[in-house]
Structures are given as structure tokens and as C-alpha cells.
């Protein structure tokens, strides 16, 4: 009799495995369709997904051949890299101070920082637009970079990581006469590889996928970033469906590949933001 229940359990487990795989494949079906259809002609776009066809590169030629395509990719990379560098330079010292030094006002400042997390960018798009226009920031990548450098999310992520570094380490360094800046540079930063990796990865994904801000603040087509630029392939007078899907693939695949290889840091970042945030 016990043998039978084990067998029953096994069958149950196999069904469970199959169902999980099926739902997983359903989740990624849109990506499969995106890639497959992007290699078809317009006439074949709505043929069944598994129907045989001869793959063509014409759609990608049209996307990559757009006069401004290199601008969009270049602007996006420039924005991502500059943001990450300044963000780290600004966030690492602040996180150290918030997690390791007691100072008056630290709780109040932290509370103000956290409170702003509750205000979605959607509710402040008008004043941001007017203000950035007043200070002549519109239509350049700096209108994206400057507001991005002080994101509270990364401050929390880094502070949380710094708190996990044993107190003894910094105490020993202090006894040796090291100042805070030295401790940060020689002990904390070399230890924070994983947290820095998470920051880099998240910054990359978020800035790459950001639509609202560049759409609002950047008006020249050659100053635009890749995600809002996808709109130029859509709408009235836009390209046909396979070309649009080729554009979507070009804007999506690099991020997905990056994500697959760095999933560990990604998961660590999401879960620490959710639990401790």
C-alpha cells in the first residue's frame, strides 16, 4: 500500500511539473511571437505561429537602417553609463553615512527621502516639465540623468548592504586611525561587489526601459532614447507589424540576455527592496 501512495504522489508531482512548464511557456509566448514574426514578411505576419516560412532580414534592415537608430542606441548607452557612475559616486558615501554614522537629523532626512517614494512621477510631470524648462534642461540626456542620480531605492539597497558588514571590521580600522572616507574606500567599497552589481543591473534596466521621462522631456528625434523611439515605428504612417516587432526585439533582447546572465543579482535586488523597503 505505501508503494501505491508514493506512485500516486509521483504522478501528482509529474502533473505539477508539466503544468508549471506549460504556464511558464505561456508567459514567454509573447517573446516567442515577437521574435518569430519579426523575421516574416508583412503578408505572413498573421499566419499561425508554427507555420513554415523563409526568414527574412528586411525588417531588421529597416529598423537598424533608420537614420536615427544609432543616435537612440548611443544616447541610451551614454545616459545609462553616466547615470550609473554619478549614482554610485553619490549613493555610496551617503549610504555609508546613513548606515554607520550617528548624526542629528538622519532620521528626519531619511523620512523625507522615503516619503517621496509614495509620489509617482505621473503626478508631478507638469511641474517637472515646467521646472526643467525654466532651468534649460529640456531636450538633452541631462534631463534624464540629473534627476536619476539621487534615487532613494539605491540608497536603501546600499545602506541595507552596508549594515550587513560586520561592525568589528570598521571598529578595527578606526582604532588603526582610519577616517570614515578611508574606511569607505578601502573596506566597504571593495566588499560591496554584489550590491554594486545589483545597482548597475537595475540602473541599466530601469533607464533603458524608461518611457515617461524621455517622452516628456526630449523633443528632438536625434536626442531621443531607445524605448520612446520605438513609437516612431508605430501609429499613423508607421511601419508594418513585422518591422514594429523587429524594433521591439532590438529594444528588448539586449536587456533579456543581460538579465538571464545576471539573474542572481537581480533577484537579490528585488527581494531586498521588497522586504526591507
Amino acid at each position: 500500500m505505501p508503494g501505491k501512495t508514493i506512485e500516486k504522489k509521483n504522478i501528482g508531482h509529474q502533473v505539477f511539473t508539466v503544468v508549471m512548464w506549460a504556464v511558464g511557456i505561456l508567459m514567454v509566448m509573447p517573446f516567442v511571437m515577437m521574435v518569430v514574426i519579426s523575421f516574416r514578411t508583412q503578408g505572413e505576419a498573421y499566419d499561425p505561429i508554427f507555420a513554415p516560412f523563409t526568414p527574412i532580414l528586411r525588417n531588421y534592415e529597416q529598423v537598424l537602417g533608420h537614420v536615427n537608430f544609432l543616435d537612440w542606441y548611443g544616447n541610451t548607452f551614454k545616459t545609462v553609463i553616466i547615470t550609473i557612475l554619478i549614482r554610485l559616486a553619490v549613493t555610496l558615501p551617503a549610504s555609508y553615512a546613513f548606515s554607520r554614522i550617528q548624526f542629528r537629523g538622519s532620521r528626519l532626512i531619511m523620512a523625507v527621502l522615503m516619503a517621496t517614494l509614495m509620489v509617482p512621477g505621473e503626478t508631478t510631470m507638469v511641474p517637472r516639465y515646467l521646472y526643467f524648462s525654466n532651468i534649460h534642461l529640456l531636450d538633452s540626456i541631462w534631463v534624464i540623468i540629473l534627476p536619476e542620480i539621487s534615487e532613494v531605492f539605491y540608497l536603501m539597497l546600499m545602506s541595507e548592504f552596508f549594515r550587513s558588514i560586520p561592525e568589528d571590521l570598521s571598529e578595527a580600522a578606526k582604532i588603526d586611525g582610519l577616517g570614515h572616507l578611508k574606511i569607505l574606500l578601502t573596506i566597504f567599497i571593495p566588499l560591496s561587489g554584489p550590491a554594486i552589481a545589483t545597482t548597475v543591473l537595475f540602473s541599466f534596466i530601469n533607464i533603458w526601459n524608461n518611457f515617461l521621462d524621455p517622452y516628456l522631456f526630449i523633443s528632438s528625434i536625434d536626442h531621443q532614447l531607445i524605448t520612446p523611439a520605438l513609437r516612431f515605428f508605430q501609429g499613423r504612417g508607421g511601419a508594418d507589424v513585422p518591422v514594429q516587432l523587429a524594433g521591439a526585439s532590438v529594444a528588448t533582447i539586449p536587456i533579456i540576455i543581460l538579465f538571464i546572465f545576471t539573474q542572481k543579482y537581480f533577484v537579490a535586488g528585488v527581494s531586498s527592496s521588497g522586504i526591507k523597503g
Binding site: M27, M34, N209, Q234, A248, A251, F259
Partner: peptide, 25 residues
């Protein structure tokens, strides 16, 4: 692990690309 990755992929995809695909589908 592979199935988890499948569930996580939509999260890192930009909404404009998602829009193009779903409008097609």
C-alpha cells in the same frame, strides 16, 4: 530555475515593446 526565468522575463521588458507585441497578438 528555467521556469522561474520565464516568469521573470516580462518584468525586464519595456512596456512600449510589450504594447507592440500584445496589440499584434
Amino acid at each position: 530555475t528555467a521556469v522561474r526565468t520565464m516568469f521573470y522575463m516580462p518584468y525586464v521588458t519595456n512596456m512600449i515593446a510589450v504594447g507592440i507585441v500584445f496589440k499584434y497578438m
